Structure formats: C-alpha cells, structure tokens
Computed example of a mutant assay.
Amino acid sequence: MIEKLVLTGAGGRLGSYLREPLSKMAEELVSTDLVDDIGTLYAGETYVKADLANYDEVFAALEGADMVVHFGAIVDEAPFEELLGPNFVGAYNVWEAAYQHGAKRVVYASSIHAVGMHAKNECIDTEVAHRPDSFYGLAKCFAEDLGRMYWDKRGLESVHLRILSCAQVTSARALGSWLSYDDLIQLVTRAVDTPTVGFSVVYGVSNNDRSPVDNNKAAFLGYRPKDNAEQFADAILAKEPPADSTDPAQMCHGGPFSAVDLGESGLAQMNIVDDRKKN
C-alpha cells in the first residue's frame, strides 16, 4: 500500500469517482481543489483547499507525497490567459513540487485534445505527434512534454492518460471515444500500481468496437477496459443527423474542440451530463 497519495481536482466530476478507490490504495489520501468543501471524507482522506497556480499552496499540499494523481484544471477551451495559471503553470507547479518532495510518480489527466487535429480515419497510437486542437489541448501537450523532461532529467516517473470522453454517451462520436467510470478507475489504478512506468502515454478509452485509438504500445500498464459503448449505438444513431464530411467536429479526433475558434468553449457544443458521484 502507498503511504501518501495526493489527488488534485478532487471536487470535479471525474475526481468524485476517483476519491474512494484511491483512498483504498493509500494509508493517506490528500484531496485538493479550489472549492470550500467536497463532502463527506472517506477513511484516510483529508481535504486541502489549494490553488494550482500558487506554487506555495501546491508545495504544501504535496508534502510527503509518494504519488500525485493530477486531475485539476479548467476542463474546457478558454482564452489562453484563463488557462495559463491552472493548466500551464499549475502543471509545472505539480511536477516541481513532486520532484522537490521526492515523489515517485505523477499520474496526469491528459486528453485526446493533445492530438485532436489528427483525422478521425487515422487510428492513432500513443507515439503519434502532438497536434493540439485548442489552447486546452496545447496545455496537455505542454504537460506531456514536461513529464517527459522531468523523467529524462530528474527521474520523476509519469503516466499521461489521454482521456477521450469520460461522460455519458450522448453522441455518435462517443460510440468510439467513451470511457466509462469503471474503466477510468481501472486506468488510474493501473497507472498507480504498475511497478515501473518511466514516461508513459495511454489512451483513456473503454473497450469500444469503434475506438479510434491504439493502446498496444501501452499494454505493459495492464489496462484492460471492460465496457463497450456499442450497447448505446442503436439509440444514438437513430437520432443522429446525417454525417457531414466537411465538419472538423466529425472528421477530427478532437470532435467539437476541433471545430470551435481558439478560446471558445468546446463543451458548449456537447451534451455533457453532470452525474458526479455523491458521497
């Protein structure tokens, strides 16, 4: 069992599903976010309010950490100036504080948006070149390169989870991109408990028949998703409008983020259900 884990973004939708399983993997789980309260704490869990853009607050929250599961960020496209603190500087603050405290590993919530402008008919693997679809995706590229540099120069391990779409299936795109919450938990668990990872990238996607990405080069992590979005296909496709091959949202891996102007919300074009876990 790990002595101390830190989870950033614990107040978010995905964080709400990770808190309980992570609390069972560590003697102490420190959950952090910007909200005042995240509800009832699990056994061994404490909550620390911390601003990712403030190095001193991040440094204090990570004291004694063996590993960091870094899910905190603005989770949408926005003007660069809004993303700079939490998404860019925040990533640096987490890696630097983790290194200074002697942590073993950072597990990072990266995103398909780091490679979102690749064409959808390309089944991309984990070594495909960065091709961000937004400032949000650019921040993911920055953190992936940051993680590689800290591994190469300082020996701090990291696993970068390129999550496709971890939300209820409400569109044809999600038939390929869906990551169920159960598979999310397995993905993070494998990223934490695999003995050695160096610098690694893995796609966060369930075992979908229509998955557009290839995880073969990350097989050593032991991530074997169980769920399949095909169960939703008939209902989703019955109400889907005709396909448009001129629409980047349909033709690129990044979906709506590939089509919006830089700085404009991608989530506003999506039907994301806020079904965060209540504890």
Results as ranks from 00 to 15, higher is better:
144 E>L: 10
107 V>E: 01
145 D>E: 14
121 N>Q: 09
145 D>M: 14
134 S>I: 01
85 G>M: 09
140 K>A: 08
105 R>C: 11
152 D>N: 10
168 Q>W: 09
89 V>H: 02
142 F>H: 11
90 G>E: 10
126 T>Q: 08
147 G>D: 14
102 G>K: 00
147 G>A: 15
169 V>D: 04
174 A>F: 04
129 A>K: 10
102 G>T: 05
170 T>G: 00
120 K>L: 14
135 F>I: 06
104 K>P: 04
148 R>Y: 03
98 A>D: 04
173 R>D: 00
95 W>D: 07
138 L>S: 12
178 W>D: 06
127 E>N: 09
157 E>D: 12
105 R>E: 10
131 R>F: 06
184 L>D: 00
126 T>W: 04
118 H>Q: 02
128 V>C: 11
137 G>A: 07
127 E>G: 07
141 C>Y: 05
181 Y>H: 10
153 K>S: 13
113 H>G: 08
160 H>F: 15
108 Y>R: 11
123 C>D: 03
141 C>R: 12
185 I>T: 06
155 G>N: 12
145 D>V: 12
141 C>E: 08
174 A>N: 02
150 Y>M: 13
118 H>M: 02
124 I>W: 11
91 A>G: 15
167 A>R: 13
145 D>G: 12
125 D>S: 14
165 S>K: 01
111 S>G: 08
131 R>W: 00
178 W>N: 05
163 I>E: 02
165 S>D: 04
104 K>Y: 07
181 Y>E: 13
147 G>F: 12
154 R>V: 03
164 L>T: 05
122 E>R: 13
120 K>I: 14
131 R>Q: 02
137 G>L: 05
159 V>W: 10
99 Y>V: 00
169 V>T: 03
115 V>Q: 06
106 V>C: 08
88 F>Y: 12
88 F>K: 00
164 L>N: 00
133 D>M: 06
92 Y>A: 15
126 T>A: 11
